[in-house]
Amino acid sequence: MSPESWLYAGATVLGAVGMWLLLPRPGERMRWVGAAMSVVSLGLILSQVSALGDMLSQSMFIVIGSTTVISAAAAVTFRNPVYCAIWFAMMLLGTAGLFMIQGSHFLSVATIVVYAGAILVTLLFVLMLANPRGNAPYDRVSWEGPLSATAGIVLVGMLTMTLGGVLKSKSFAADMPSELIAAQEAQADDQADAAGPVNILTQDHSASLGARMFSAHLVSIEVAGVLLLAALVGAVAIIAHSRAAQPEEAKSAAQVAMQAPSENGRDR
């Protein structure tokens, strides 16, 4: 095995044991040991990513990327579900930062608005309605912690090892420009109505994204709209159904109560 493979294998083992120690389980958890092992594993994996070539971008990427991943690990390992939700919000902020580095500003804002603004707040509502304290027994155990940690981290290890092998090979980097140029030419032929070549780092980012979205992807947008409507109706139907069950029983009970006096009256 090459040194890279050993490094990935070490990162996988460290990460699996670290995540297992972090997951909730009864008894002494040794969470700090688990956190340290997970961070070392993350550092090993990130050390294999080749440099961006620009000091500022590189440090921004490392800081925001590791914030995202560490918040993600915290979001699935904290016992109190409220803390999980808050760490999930931190992960969303990190993802929005990653999108911003990629130059997709609209998505970055949309992630914060839709996820952190709408989905997470709904989730916190449900959480507060259901169980605000994190001392339920089922929050303090996991299903098969070692097995699930191993499954997830082995998946990560295999993916990152393959990525490192493919993306760092000389042929991939050498093939890239001609392939990119060919793809761009094909695209230019494809969208003959669009003015000028495609550049996703353009200044009028949202306008170009919207133009692309409402021309080439119009059907997807229509489908997404129908899906949203269906989800709205479905959610209302689910809640209304569970609400309707109780008045039905109450009504029948009331009918019984109404009938009983009349029978008594008939007897009289």
Partner: peptide, 11 residues
Amino acid sequence: GIGLIGFLSRR
């Protein structure tokens, strides 16, 4: 992968 771990292990 971390999401997978959370989905498999949390109750």
